[in-house]
Every structure is written in structure tokens, then in C-alpha cells.
């Protein structure tokens, strides 16, 4: 049976709203409380080349993801919504001029949202593709203890 809805975790960074499929997320905790784990953890913005710094995160959280191939953590801004239901009819592919980007980017589409006090675009982001990209660009997602946050 085809999926008719997508359940998303939503967070905002630098004014951009990102949505991550809840499937594959196996845990979440504040970065400040993260214990040293033997799994790679990386900052979300560093792989996407977003021009912000780690200090721009107001309340960083570590999102843990796991599938048959990998187990890793991504540091994101504190989610504004969890389990947000999005109908497939509100999901759009990225425009043709961005098609080349779609092949390599973790951002694979856009969801149109409209609700109480909100009307806008959510960038749909595949964190497993994010992980692949982070490995390709040899980012700092090697096994490290999470940086201390005061």
C-alpha cells in the first residue's frame, strides 16, 4: 500500500524550516546532556553549508538515527513540532533548475504547510543522505565526544 502521509519532525535554522521523516529516528536528547557514545555525531548545518555557526543554535538537540546500514547522530535546533502529519498532496519536488542539486543534496523536496499562524515551505531533508554526504565531504562527523555546551 502506498504511503499517503508523512510524519515529520520540524525545526528551524536561520529562518529556514526543515522537516525530517520520523521513520528512522530512534532517539533525541539535548546536546548538553549527551553522554559520550561510540557513534558519529555531526552538526546539521556544517554538511549543508549553511552560513551559521554552532553558537547560533539556541537549544541544540541530538537526533539519533538508525537503519540497517548506519547509526549516527545529527545536531539540530530544538524541534518546534514532532509527528507533524503532512499529506502527500502537499509535497512538491524541487523545481527543475534545482534538479542537479536534488541528486546530491539531503534536501529532496518541499512541503507546503498552512496552519495556525503559519503559511510556508518546509524543506524535506533525508538525514541518511545527509550522513552519506557528510562522509563524502569528510566532515567532522568522525567519532567524537560531543562538544561541551555551557
Amino acid at each position: 500500500m502506498q504511503t499517503q502521509t508523512l510524519f515529520l519532525l520540524l525545526f528551524t535554522l536561520k529562518g529556514i524550516r526543515f522537516g525530517v521523516d520520523m521513520e528512522g529516528i530512534c532517539g533525541m536528547e539535548p546536546l548538553s546532556r549527551t553522554s559520550e557514545r561510540e557513534i558519529p555525531i555531526g552538526w546539521f548545518h556544517e554538511v549543508l553549508s549553511l552560513e551559521i555557526s554552532r553558537s547560533d543554535y539556541q537549544s541544540p538537540m541530538v537526533l539519533y538515527l538508525q537503519n540497517a546500514k548506519s547509526h549516527f547522530g545529527v545536531i539540530i535546533e530544538s524541534p518546534e513540532e514532532v509527528n507533524r502529519q503532512i499529506d502527500l498532496e502537499n509535497i512538491r519536488p524541487l523545481p527543475k533548475l534545482m534538479e542537479q542539486l536534488c541528486r546530491i543534496s539531503p534536501v529532496w523536496g518541499a512541503a507546503l504547510t498552512s496552519g495556525k499562524g503559519e503559511k510556508g515551505i518546509v524543506l524535506l531533508t533525508d538525514l541518511f543522505r545527509w550522513r552519506d554526504l557528510s562522509l563524502k565531504i569528510e566532515s567532522k562527523t568522525a567519532t567524537v565526544a560531543p562538544p561541551a555546551v555551557s
Binding site: I16, S49, L50, L97, M98, L101, I104, S105, V107, L123
Partner: peptide, 8 residues
Amino acid sequence: VTFVPGCP
């Protein structure tokens, strides 16, 4: 305009 990270 919503910026898309990594776009040209």
C-alpha cells in the same frame, strides 16, 4: 524567498 542549502 526560501533559501535552499546547496542550491546554485
